[in-house]
């Protein structure tokens, strides 16, 4: 009951924030349109709809970090959390109440990217549903990051770290925009050590229906997701105690 009430509130707070429409839905959709227009003039395989659409769904999820971190930081600063800590709500109610509503938002955001792709000529297939399913661990990774940053940063810091730094890191290190092999060297090594490129590759492979070979990428994403969720939980509990 506590989780349901708090999750509903989280969903309403985020859906009523114009940032969601502008960045969550509009920006990834606009990028698919822009890169497809470039692709029509200067063909590059990386910008083909079959590649850029699933890649952009992963990039779009980085905004979930911004949304959830902003909300947690705002709640801490406004003392709403302090009020709720003095109610019978338990720590797990808070964690689930922040994370669960982000999942339908992630699915909606990704489905919107697929819809834009289809409007531009992408063929509709059952793999889109698989794509949505395999996005879940990736979405949880970004949601967990939001909880983590929201627990330690102020609202202002969240804007800089999650709004600028993380979205850029996701964009450049996921290989959605640039071919990592082409850059090679340290850049490729760093990108491969982080989960962003594995998440994008996983999504592209699932989208293409080439399920064999996804396991290493899936495991990479799952390990990062588990680690981030554990760390986010620990940091959230720490700030809860400090309050």
């Amino acid at each position: 009951m506590h989780v349901k009430a708090f999750a509903k509130r989280t969903l309403l707070e985020i859906l009523r924030d114009p940032l969601l429409l502008v960045f969550g839905l509009g920006f990834p959709g606009a990028l698919i349109l822009l890169l497809t227009a470039i692709q029509s003039k200067v063909p590059a395989p990386i910008f083909a709809l079959e590649s850029i659409t699933p890649g952009m769904t992963v990039f779009g999820l980085s905004f979930l970090t911004l949304f959830s971190a902003t909300l947690v930081a705002k709640d801490r600063e406004s003392t709403l959390l302090l009020r709720l800590y003095a109610t019978p709500m338990r720590a797990q109610d808070f964690l689930l109440g922040y994370m669960l509503p982000m999942i339908p938002i992630a699915l909606l955001q990704s489905a919107f990217c697929f819809l834009i792709g289809m409007l531009l000529g992408l063929k509709c297939s059952i793999n889109m549903l698989w794509g949505l399913l395999f996005l879940l661990p990736i979405a949880l990774f970004f949601i967990g990051l939001g909880l983590l940053f929201g627990s330690i940063l102020t609202q202002k810091q969240v804007g800089g770290i999650c709004g600028a730094l993380l979205t850029n890191l996701t964009a450049w290190l996921s290989g959605v925009w640039i071919d990592l092999k082409l850059l090679g060297g340290a850049f490729e090594a760093v990108a491969n050590a982080l989960p962003f490129a594995h998440a994008a590759t996983l999504e592209k492979m699932v989208f293409a229906g080439t399920f064999h070979g996804i396991v290493p990428h899936l495991l990479w994403v799952l390990c990062y997701t588990a680690a981030i969720l554990v760390l986010a939980t620990a940091l959230f509990l720490r700030q809860m105690k400090r309050q």
Binding site: M1, A5, R9, L12, T87
Partner: peptide, 29 residues
């Protein structure tokens, strides 16, 4: 915690929720 209520120093409300929704949140909790 089951028998206390707290109104903290700063205003602690859900800013994007209506007054009714804020009260409903607490009822749900």
């Amino acid at each position: 915690k089951a028998l206390i209520g707290l109104s903290p120093q700063n205003t602690a409300v859900g800013p994007n929720l209506t007054v009714q929704e804020n009260l409903a949140l607490m009822c749900g909790i």
